[in-house]
Amino acid sequence: MMPPQLKIAALVSVGRNPASGAPRAARNDVLALDAALGLAREVSVLHAGDAAPALHDYLAYGAASVEVLPLPPGADALAPLAGRVAGYDLILCGQRAEAGQGSGMLAYRLAKALNMPVVSAALEISLLGDEVEIVQFLPKGQRRVVRVSLPAVIALHPLAPRNPRYVYASRRAGRLLSAPAQVGAPLPASPWQSEPAVKKPQKLKPPETRQGHARLLGAIATESKGGALVREGSAAEKARAILDYLRANRLIGF
């Protein structure tokens, strides 16, 4: 199906059950792992951080082993990952992590560091020689087909139609491998302060300068537009009005 020499890596992070907060395999990363295993029998499954017990879940989802690249807590995972996957042909990751910052930036930063193209929101991935074809998610039932040359970084969309299976026996059979510790650069002080998310974020609003009557009017009169009203004419003319509106706004292609 494909030349066996392609080197494919799947990047996996530790996820977080949204209800209980318990660590687990991250859903998007399971999709990335499953997609990688669909493309090659041998996949390097990499995690930067601690050898957390939750990583065993990836073994159950089909990883023969998970290679753990040591990382001081809170440090940036980019440097060890970029160093490890240099020379790989295809690097798959999840679109957004479930723990940590979850900014969805890693794929882009990794691609920049390795000077590779990056495609996100991937639903399906197929190899075509030295290119890879990706079906990308777009809202409203659209899908886009994109090709990029290898090597490339691809981030999997949460709705990727894959069906990873959890096999307990493989969980028992697989292993976590620890890479030798690297000397990490000291962390710059983070300007971010995190707090438990209890309060609802505030919407950015213009300051209220209206007084009394104007404010009252503003509260009762919504800025409703109330569009055109077609009362007169035959049913055919009314139908025509609808079709004309749809055409004028380019909502139908005919």
Binding site: R16, G102, Q193, E195, A197, P201, Q202
Partner: peptide
């Protein structure tokens, strides 16, 4: 998720924490 003059906030930890900066 939150904008103020000179400051922003967003969710971390899958929504459990709000980070300001």
């Amino acid at each position: 998720v939150e904008l103020k003059p000179g400051a922003v906030a967003m969710y971390w930890q899958g929504g459990a924490a709000l980070a300001r900066g």
